[in-house]
Design a binder for these strands. Structure first.
Lengths: 215, 215
DNA sequence: GTCTATAGCCCGATAGAC
DNA sequence: GTCTATCGGGCTATAGAC
């Protein structure tokens, strides 16, 4: 009984640390954050942090693992509808934009790591991310072979899909400035989704051409 | 005479410091780089660095100013062809991809700053970048009003254009992994350009529809 | 302009009391 | 589990000799 309560409390603090660390790593990158920053933001001592996580790098690695779990969970839309490219693409774009909307810090932590050339997480990316992306590329290629869509370069199409959706998390501060708003709202994500879906479907789907999208 | 030689040598070291600092800030972000790292990489002492630049933040600011100069110089394609949307868009995409190809570290330094919410460079971004972007959006809107292209949301189209071109600098490590290469080559940038141009023109240009792009 | 020396602080990590 | 204390080192920046 007691051991359960203790373990629950321990679990909670551990999750709090991970959440706060994620936010700070997103904002300032691995080298820009100290254990003391994280500890103070979570209301614990630096030494207590090191009781839960053996080192700063291990804490960062745990954060990145959590980020990847969330990221990949939003990315399985393509395989869910193996015979319907249009609906699969619509759901894929919607899902990736929802990730940017709901987990911007996850996106930023991952972006920081990739921009740095993934010095710490290269192995995990190669083992978990690349296979997922290549599977999606393969789905595009299979659609093309079966005549369900046009022949496009699935690899670069995939790059464009990440780029154009994740930018609404990673670059939200600058996009807000361009839109003249304090922060992005549901309407902005809806407009982004409409444009990206329209562009991709125009490019990927076979004729007959789709009607003009509403302005 | 002597003062000229001295000033030239001074100028050269200053430029060397800025170049090395740019590379390191791109890789590890502002907080992940120390003056000592930069000094050692440039073959000078940390104290000598502080003779040329009054502080770390001022050095970083100078790097960012240089980055912005380069970035903006690649971005004036739209206004060069005010009556030809297709050619303007082609040149704009080509220019932005050339920037990613030729100045990846510039792109990464800027990306790092934006992801962090632009804590240091917010003012300069608001004064130099946002007006340039809004001018480009205005050009899109004018084309639409004059019936030269379809009504699209110029702001989100602009976001998509940055995102899909800068990703080839900022995310080059991961894109290389997906493509199964050590690093990106001219052919990869050409393939990216073909896809992005095709997608954007399909979306922006008026009917009659363009023929299928070559695979 | 470049050097040595150093101030004063923050860093990650460990030891040991309770 | 959380605390105080502390180690050894790196950090930005300054002072002053040459």
């Amino acid at each position: 009984m007691r051991s359960v309560k203790v373990s629950v409390a321990r679990e909670k603090l551990e999750q709090d640390i991970l959440a706060v660390a994620k936010r700070l790593f997103a904002q300032r990158g691995y080298g820009g954050v100290s254990l003391d920053h994280i500890a103070k933001a979570v209301g614990a001592s630096k030494q207590n942090l090191l009781y839960y996580f053996p080192s700063k790098e291990e804490l960062y690695r745990r954060v990145l693992h959590g980020v990847l779990d969330v990221w990949l969970s939003y990315m399985d839309a393509l395989s869910q509808r193996p015979d319907d490219p249009e609906q699969a693409i619509r759901e894929y774009i919607a899902g990736k934009l929802r990730f940017s909307r709901e987990h911007p810090d996850d996106s930023r932590v991952y972006a920081n790591e990739v921009i740095s050339g993934a010095p710490i997480f290269a192995t995990e990316i190669a083992e978990r991310v690349i296979p997922a992306l290549q599977a999606d590329v393969a789905i595009f290629n299979r659609w093309a072979e079966r005549g369900l869509c046009r022949q496009v370069d699935g690899r670069h199409l995939m790059v464009l899909l990440w780029a154009s959706t994740q930018v609404y998390a990673d670059w939200s501060s600058q996009i807000s400035l361009v839109l003249g708003k304090k922060e992005l709202g549901d309407d902005d994500f809806a407009a982004a989704e409409a444009l990206i879906v329209d562009m991709v479907l125009r490019t990927v789907l076979l004729a007959p051409q789709r009607p003009e999208a509403p302005v």
